[in-house]
Design a protein around this nucleic acid. Structure first.
Lengths: 216, 216, 216, 216
DNA sequence: TGCTAATCGAGACGGTACGTCTAGTCTTTTT
DNA sequence: AAAAAGACTAGACGTACCGTCTCGATTAGCA
């Protein structure tokens, strides 16, 4: 861990060991004590760092959280050649990433922090926008393949999907199974109206229930 | 406001004036100082109430927030006889309610609070579940009318729609115009696939089977 | 003890059971929790009485302490026919009374209380004056027997002896053995005994009154 | 007063300005509001100091009182070459010191505090012991001069004299005139002189007039 | 090589809020 | 009329953090 007791200044420039020790400590504190126990004071104690050292490099609690999150965040947007699988795969990997690393706790904390700190909110908004654009590319690829209507707002679709993920994170429902994720994605992709025509469950069972507008 | 300086005990039972003054003060503090400035101490000061009086009736900051929210929350689930209009109307009224009253700030704060306090998280989860069930009834009505496939998971649809609302609240995007809301609802209702008619299984097998609007 | 759970009002007059229960509880609280844990609140809880009931009959914490003390205080001023034995006996019985009942704690508390409450101080002063007069009677009896010079200030002697007792109480030194008490009394006595020989007043007037054992 | 608004940390060590401001404030609060109005909160307000700064250096209310008292306490034990004058002088200077500075209030408070806090009691006991030893030296000097019998317990004499002072402090009787003090001291002294028969006035003149047990 | 400047751990500082405790007052209900 | 019950405002308790500050030590890079 970053508990290097003899860590000192390395001269008139940032000591990367300190930065690492602080990020390590921040993650550890968050995991062990939760967001409510996460304080600059606790991180400094854990990292054997002076508080000013933290404040020098991270202006706020959230900035620190953000860096910790960035260090962990590696969610790929798969390209299976099929939008449903892309989206389900994205949600699955995001959920499991949030569940199995500390990144879930961190991101929750970040969202919470944004509710009381406007600058954090701005940063989070910016970040979210970027992520939506990124996720939206899966939809754009589907458009290019002709899977999806050309006038569909890819960012809005990304927003719908990401929103679903966010709220499940925020309400401790990251244990959703693949069936539920696939069903949710299916609703966005194919709709739920009676003559939207495909029953996803039926489809999965290998049968089709044609419901409407079928003639002859 | 509730700044009744002469408020006293009314005997060995709860004084509703005090309760009101505290809820009023809580709302005012939240509006004026934001979630970061929202403290029991500040509420007590504003309400001219003793802290123990607050703690006697609300075990936590969140419990107080919750009551303040409940006092304001009046979002109806319209019954227009048409699911799209129902859902768009629901989102519109929810967004404007959050935008135009303090309930938006309060609910954001509540979600934030839930991230650091497990009991709040539990209460919020319970509440959310109830709201989803309620919203899901719009879908159930549509099912009954035959608008929506019988095996659609109404709660999941409600989840999708509510998630969209939550994230817009949490990221300061309550200014979404009706067009955007209608489009988002439309995606869930009708799907986004090119002609609403792709058999995903087929796609998964690399082929496309046109299933709808098939003539002859 | 006074923990009668079903005690009720007995109508439009003071309920002696309540008074007793309160005094019992006050004593018990003082013994169990010490002066720092002694509060009207705690006494009310212990006595299963309402705080107003206590305040109705005892205007202050000290008034209650005083009554509790009075209930216990039974220190006799022995008359052995010899002043030294009288005073030593008095101190012995006072020390053991303070040591072996709760009255020591109570009186200490009373003195402490008097330091922050002027009305208590006044009551205590009055009480002390009365006790000194009482104790002084032992000296007066000795005067009558000719043991002590006629112009000795009996109250001042009582003051000296009582002061010794007070400070030993206040500094947890009630374990003084009889030898010490007798020695202390002895120091005071030999100066006032009829043949202790010098009349201080006379000395101050520049004259000497030889009192005893002078020959030639 | 100590109302230095810009007082700040001077690095990772105690700021003597803060300490002074706090001691000043403590004394002022005690003088102005009395012991009942003396709270750490009030001292912090008065000193413009944070409560934790006070608690960092003084573990309890009493520790603070003690330091304030120590700052003021300058009672000399005079050496007039005559024990009576030494003791009367000591009492006179102690009484006037207690009367004319705030040290009287402070010491009273300290004694009161000791009645509810065992650690304070211990400190006070230690302090008292030290003072008695100190005062006892006046008696020891008198022994060396042959004024006092060799087997007299100097500490016990000091105890008797100090007890008299304490109780007068605790019962608002610091207005005792010199005659009373001299009489009280006289009572104790005449009993401890070498043969119970010295004329103090004569001693003061440097001569000893044997008055008792004189033969032929 | 010696000086300057930035960085480090450390921890004190003035503050604010926490959640609990007690003070003393008040009113209703019960006897 | 008095007791029980318990709510009320008020404010102190001692603790945890906040974000800022100053210190003395350390070391890179410039002179």
């Amino acid at each position: 861990m970053g508990l290097d007791p003899g860590r000192r200044s390395i001269g008139a420039r940032r000591n990367p060991d300190s930065a690492d020790a602080i990020l390590d400590a921040a993650e550890a504190v968050l995991v062990e004590a939760g967001y409510s126990g996460f304080s600059i004071e606790a991180v400094a104690r854990r990292a054997r760092a002076g508080k000013p050292t933290i404040y020098r490099w991270w202006p706020s609690k959230a900035a620190l959280l953000f860096d910790v999150y960035q260090r962990l965040k590696r969610v790929d947007h798969p390209d299976t050649g099929n939008l449903e699988d892309d989206l389900v795969g994205f949600l699955k990997s995001l959920f499991s990433h949030w569940r199995e690393t500390s990144s879930g706790s961190i991101f929750r904390s970040l969202i919470a922090e944004a509710q009381s700190d406007a600058t954090v909110a701005a940063v989070l908004a910016e970040y979210t926008k970027g992520r939506h654009a990124h996720t939206g590319q899966m939809v754009e690829r589907a458009k290019a393949r002709g899977e999806v209507a050309a006038d569909v707002d890819a960012t809005l679709v990304a927003d719908l999907v990401a929103s679903f993920a966010w709220t499940h994170l925020l309400t401790n429902r990251l244990d959703a199974d693949e069936t539920t994720l696939r069903r949710a994605v299916g609703y966005v992709l194919k709709g739920i109206e009676a003559d939207g025509s495909v029953d996803p469950a039926a489809v999965r069972r290998g049968r089709r229930r044609v419901i409407g507008r079928v003639t002859g």
